[in-house]
Structure formats: structure tokens, C-alpha cells
């Protein structure tokens, strides 16, 4: 693995990542051997995303690259590969309705339609007030027994009906 190219000037991690993020990333780095600190990149990106209302700016990714001594492009590759990372600004509440096969059989389409109509946006969009981000969920969230289901800010809600969805979403800040 090549390290940061010397021609590339990266921001000092401390100038972009807050103290809490740095502390958490460093904790993750202790879990890997000295010459494999880049293994902490997934954790580091997710920590960085947390501090920035759910999305990764180039500056944040560069800071992670600097922290883990990785070429920035290698960090961009990881961030753009995984669907749990957002590389453009999104709404502050992440709403991911599962549309995989079990949920689909249980009527997830109705739930999606309901939410799309409720906010006048499509899957993948955020509301204009920046409150809701309707994430396209790529994979089964492994709660098939409770389908249709959705994940809101990392919390699972199962056996959804349009009414229960309204209740959950209206309660979001």
C-alpha cells in the first residue's frame, strides 16, 4: 500500500476532524497492526460522517487520508463504494425503507409511495428543509420477520403501516 504522495498537500486531521472524532479514530487504529492502519478507514469514515450531519465532504475524506497515511484517492474509492457513505449533502435524518424481497412481498412499495407523496420527493432525495433524507437501501436489512421495515437513524422500525410511518417520521426533529 502506498502512502500519501508527497506532492499532495492534505489538511491537518485536527483542523477538520473534531476532538471526539479523532479520539474515536485513534481508538480504532489501535486495533490494527502498525503497518495496516488503513484498515481503520471504514470506521474512520463513518466517524467522520457522523460529525458532519451524515455526509462526507472531500475535506473530511482528505483528513481521514492524512490521519491514516493513505493516498486520498484510496479513501475516495472506499467512500464512493459503500452505500452507507454519502458524498453529497443529505437531510439530517436518514430514512431507509427496505425494498428487498421479503419487505417487497409485505408491501414496502406502498410504504415508499406513501413517504414519497408525503414529502414530495423521490427515493434518494432529501426534503428541502433538510429534515429528511430518503436513502435508497441497496440491501436486505435482515429484519424479514418484521417486514415491511425501515431504518431511521440506525434504529429499526418493523411491521410498518402508513400510519405508523407518519408517526415515526413526524416525531423526527
Amino acid at each position: 500500500m502506498s502512502s500519501v504522495p508527497a506532492d499532495v498537500i492534505l489538511p491537518a486531521p485536527e483542523s477538520v476532524l473534531n476532538a471526539h472524532s479523532i479520539e474515536e479514530i485513534e481508538e480504532w487504529m489501535t486495533r490494527f497492526p502498525d503497518n495496516q492502519k488503513q484498515s481503520a478507514v471504514l470506521a474512520a469514515l463513518s466517524i467522520a460522517q457522523h460529525q458532519n450531519q451524515g455526509w462526507l465532504s472531500t475535506e473530511l475524506m482528505d483528513a481521514v487520508a492524512a490521519k491514516l497515511h493513505m493516498p486520498p484517492i484510496a479513501v475516495y474509492e472506499v467512500a464512493s463504494f459503500y452505500s452507507m457513505f454519502e458524498t453529497t449533502p443529505v437531510g439530517r435524518n436518514c430514512v431507509a425503507i427496505c425494498t428487498n424481497i421479503s419487505c417487497m412481498l409485505m408491501g414496502s412499495d406502498t410504504i415508499v409511495n406513501h413517504v414519497e407523496n408525503k414529502y414530495g420527493i423521490k427515493l434518494g432525495d432529501s426534503t428541502e428543509d433538510g429534515r429528511i433524507y430518503l436513502k435508497v437501501e441497496e440491501e436486505c436489512l435482515a429484519a424479514c420477520s418484521g417486514g415491511p421495515m425501515m431504518q431511521v437513524n440506525h434504529v429499526y422500525h418493523t411491521n410498518l403501516t402508513p400510519e405508523s410511518v407518519d408517526e415515526i417520521l413526524d416525531a423526527l426533529e
Partner: peptide, 26 residues
């Protein structure tokens, strides 16, 4: 070259080879 400037970003059908951000290769 020892400088990793190009990479494969994105996933599946959306993979792109490039620099991700607009920059000149050095």
C-alpha cells in the same frame, strides 16, 4: 510512478476511473 492519483471510485455499473476531484495529475 509511486503516486496513486487515479482510482476506481463508485461501485458496480457506476465505477469510474479518475481522480474523483478535479485535479491535474502531478
Amino acid at each position: 510512478a509511486g503516486i496513486r492519483e487515479l482510482g476506481a471510485t463508485g461501485r458496480g455499473e457506476n465505477v469510474r476511473i479518475g481522480t474523483y476531484i478535479e485535479k491535474s495529475v502531478v
